[in-house]
Design a protein around this nucleic acid. Structure first.
Lengths: 245, 245
DNA sequence: CGATTTATTGAATCGACTCAATTGATGTGG
DNA sequence: CCACATCAATTGAGTCGATTCAATAAATCG
């Protein structure tokens, strides 16, 4: 939960009461999943909105012949689409990467938020808009960036998103993705991911070993990935809505 | 306006009053744009939510070195992100393809909808969720589909979206995109788009000439594009919210 | 510790790209 | 309404980024 609050507070400052409501909602229906398990499958009826409390997960889609694309990653503090439950069926699957803890948030919780807690509501809107922007940026990456630019870009994005959630050290963070995961996310073959990683490593842009990523020089990596952080909208803009305590 | 209503009614049946409200909102602040003009630019402060009344537009992003990616198309009846105005600046540009007529919808209009008109609010939510799903599907296309699959898929998507808005004849529709537009949208070179089109044409999957697209056999085209319409969520699911008149 | 997954390397191939030139449309002003 | 200018579409040839297939090395896990 703290990861969500930490993230949202980059946009809107919440009151103690706001934080308490979020804390309660996230403590109610908590579930744990093993690594490499589906939380939801394409075709399922969406019931609740999931909040990731701990661990990494992803959305993915698959073609009949097995080709698989990871369309987004869920990091701690991320929420899947607000209001999904108005749809009849999932158009994609959600699977875990590591072991994952989620909280299921009910329709009623959101009804309550949207009528009585405008600051949280605004923060949720912001979260959703940023997720859309991330999806657009992935479209950009897949369409225009070369393999190494694309990888560098993804490393920047994940590093910054983790930092917002308070999940980085100085210049390092956990990084549990396998090269196969990276391949599925970047639309590249495993072999080429491997070679591209070697390239980034020998340029001393990243150190990636034992599920830990070190970014010695973020600015440099951003340059290589043609990374512009504007799409993450990390400006404290909700000021007019700030709580006073 | 009628295109928006027509589209939304695939999900929620609206009342006469609902339709009237939408009609009024869309008549208030109407603007016209010439073809190949920017409606909004990356970096601008977002002021209003735009509703496309007529014509085709697109969102696009550009890298410093000029590489350009169209990340989505706007067709008549489409709305750009709800609540964009809470963000400080645009992370992408919006440009016209043809001449375009838009209506600017204000913050106040949405406040009114979300408190007093739950059916419209639900329909807007649905619209937004479908747009997210479309963006994910583009990620899938760019990451996994081959050039010809990708093109076939796009033709299917556009044809179906236009049909929802009431903008197709039997098996044909307007199609004002140039091969350069297609290239920017599909992450391919112009030359390769040209060759891929020839391939689809000689397989008699499409007839594309003079800005008119004919799809002689949609089912066949869907097979080639590995197209599954589930992501458009065109099931009349909001039934419980239907108006009675 | 063996078993399985993950990472690495080499070689051959192919899909898509670039460059460059040509043909065909479209549109505008005189 | 034609002539010219511009933009859009097409074709050919050579190249390159990324792929596939296959084998090996290194981690990780029960």
């Amino acid at each position: 939960m703290s990861h969500l609050i930490r993230k949202l507070e980059h946009f809107v400052r919440l009151s103690g009461a706001d934080r308490a409501i979020l804390g309660r909602a996230a403590a109610e229906r908590v579930r744990n999943f093993a690594p490499r398990i589906d939380i939801a499958r394409e075709g399922d009826r969406p019931r609740d909105v999931h909040l990731i409390l701990a661990g990494w997960a992803c959305r993915y889609k698959q073609l009949e012949d097995g080709r698989r694309q990871i369309v987004s990653f869920f990091l701690p503090g991320d929420i899947c689409d607000l209001n999904v439950f108005i749809l009849r069926e999932m158009d994609h699957s959600i699977g875990t990467i590591t072991s994952v803890t989620i909280a299921d948030l009910s329709r009623e919780f959101f009804d309550e938020i949207f009528v009585g807690h405008p600051r949280i509501a605004t923060a949720f809107w912001w979260e959703g808009l940023v997720n859309s922007a991330i999806q657009r940026e992935w479209t950009m990456s897949l369409g225009q960036r070369t393999a190494s630019e694309r990888m560098a870009h993804l490393f920047c994005e994940i590093f910054l998103r983790l930092r917002l959630a308070g999940l980085t050290r100085e210049d390092s963070c956990d990084f549990p993705l396998t090269q196969a995961d990276l391949a599925d996310a970047m639309g590249l073959s495993k072999v080429h991911v491997n070679r591209t990683l070697q390239e980034l490593r020998s340029a001393e842009l990243i150190i990636l070993k034992g599920k830990i990523l070190i970014v010695p020089n973020l600015e440099q990596l951003m340059n290589v990935g043609l990374f512009n952080a504007n799409y993450l909208h990390i400006d404290h803009e909700g000021r007019q809505l700030d709580a006073n305590d």
